[in-house]
Design a protein around this nucleic acid. Structure first.
Length: 436
DNA sequence: CGTATTTGACCGGCGC
DNA sequence: GCGCCGGTCAAATACG
């Protein structure tokens, strides 16, 4: 537990470093021959900031959308959420959910509705929470002001969808994650116990069933199956909501799936579950995500290669991470294109661990992950090709490495949020055994 | 010996 | 009603 807390601290330190660099404004000589390049980078930076701002706006919109829905459906529970979601002192507070409350069983179990209270360790400045809902306590800065979007009349727009949904009894939501993975199961930071295996129809590869064993009462289950078309692709399907705190690494994965689950809860993004066994709505568009059936101001969330479907009355959202257009082509790609210009004498990397948490040490395949520090030489560490040499330079500039680019980048809370997303992606990659 | 995994049996939902 | 199929249970087995 202590080690898990250390990881969160590491992440916090990481942001602290970024913040320090934000404060550390290094003057740039106006007469520098690099002015042209600086201007170019500035322009690129502006574009990047704009993109990030757009993403955050959309997220904020989704959050309000979700809160609105949640308060309607579960007014008492939402009060708890609101009270838990407090202290806007700049610390990020994240409530995560996976799945829906559509199941009666879950309604009977109050533990699935509430967020977990703050940990007593007062030194944990940043805290991750699990529970229903996904909430960010944004810093009250200029950017968050920008995020105050006028929310369209969601209720009226939603009603039609809700009526449609009400006609079809849906079971617990599921989130499928497709990753390229050579190991038997993708390591998502959680602890699982296998309880069954089946040969599913249409796929010669057996499907393994796992339940979460971090807590004996945790209802979360997952099943893992190799893709029939491409055996290197592992399809992991999650169902249920963790009723216990998660390690930072597990939280990262959960945040991805919870975001997807939130998408399922978003009426405008929910596919119309037809009477057939499976119906699919695909979301696509810029940032590698597609969307349809919704006006531009309502794009609920940005996830790459996302598909929503229903299978046997289970609303299922599939995150296809076998390719990552979101990360490769959009905001982060801009960032990655610029980063090689920076030196890396002091870098933040996501590579091998210097230690593993006590929690994860119990795992069969403990996730190898650290936010800060140098790689341990003897450790094999992994990364997907698209993240090769993913580093954020925090070093003083050298040669043609304009200092204010990174400074401006890191000064933006949007950037930090995007960075959190990238961490999630990296956890995913490490878990899937991709090389770093 | 305790815990995790395997595997056949069983159950419930769904379509015909 | 019957069969198929996905999902779960639980006894047997493996493992550390």
């Amino acid at each position: 537990m202590a080690a898990s807390s250390n990881k969160e601290k590491s992440m916090f330190s990481f942001f602290q470093i970024i913040e320090e660099h934000h404060d550390d404004q290094i003057p740039v000589s106006k007469t520098s021959p690099q002015d042209a390049e600086i201007g170019e980078v500035r322009e690129e930076n502006q574009k990047l900031k704009h993109t990030l701002s757009t993403v955050l706006k959309d997220y904020k919109s989704l959050q309000m959308h979700y809160n609105d829905f949640f308060q309607q459906e579960f007014p008492k529970s939402s009060e708890n959420l609101v009270t838990d979601h407090q202290e806007g002192d700049g610390n990020e507070l994240i409530c995560l959910s996976l799945g829906t409350l559509s199941s009666n069983k879950e309604k009977d179990s109050p533990k699935k509705v509430n967020c977990f209270g703050k940990s007593k360790g007062g030194d944990d400045e940043q805290e991750l929470k699990l529970g229903l809902g996904c909430q960010f306590d944004m810093n009250k800065d200029e950017n968050s002001k920008n995020l105050e979007l006028p929310v369209p009349s969601l209720k009226s727009e939603r009603r039609e969808d809700d009526d449609l949904l009400d006609q079809i009894p849906l079971k617990k939501a599921r989130v499928s994650v497709k990753v390229v993975c050579d190991t038997q199961t993708m390591n998502d930071g959680c602890q699982w116990r296998k309880y069954g295996q089946k040969i599913a129809k249409g796929n010669p590869c057996p499907r393994a069933y796992y339940r979460c064993t971090v807590s004996s009462s945790c209802p979360v289950r997952k099943h893992v199956q190799r893709c029939a078309e491409d055996k290197s692709v592992l399809i992991t399907t999650y169902e249920g909501t963790h009723n216990h705190p998660l390690s930072a690494s597990a939280t990262a994965m959960a945040s991805t799936t919870s975001a997807a689950a939130s998408m399922l809860k978003s009426p405008s993004s929910t596919s119309q579950p037809g009477t057939s066994a499976s119906s699919t709505t695909t979301f696509s568009g810029h940032h590698g995500m597609t969307y349809n059936s919704m006006p531009p101001h309502q794009y609920p969330i940005y996830l790459p290669n996302t598909t929503i479907s229903t299978y046997q009355s289970h609303p299922t959202i599939t995150l296809d991470l076998t390719s990552n257009p979101h990360f490769n082509r959009s905001t982060s790609s801009n960032f990655l294109r610029t980063q090689p210009r920076f030196s890396s004498s002091s870098c933040i990397n996501f590579s091998s661990p210097s230690s593993s948490s006590s929690m994860e040490s119990n795992y069969k395949n403990p996730i190898k992950f650290s936010y800060l520090g140098n790689p341990t030489p003897n450790e094999a560490f992994y990364q997907k090709p698209s993240y090769d040499n993913f580093k954020i330079s925090s070093s003083p500039p050298s040669q043609n490495h304009p200092p204010e680019t990174i400074t401006t980048l890191t000064s933006n809370p949007s950037f930090r949020s995007a960075l959190a997303a990238s961490i999630t992606s990296l956890v995913r990659n490490v878990g899937s055994g991709a090389k770093i």
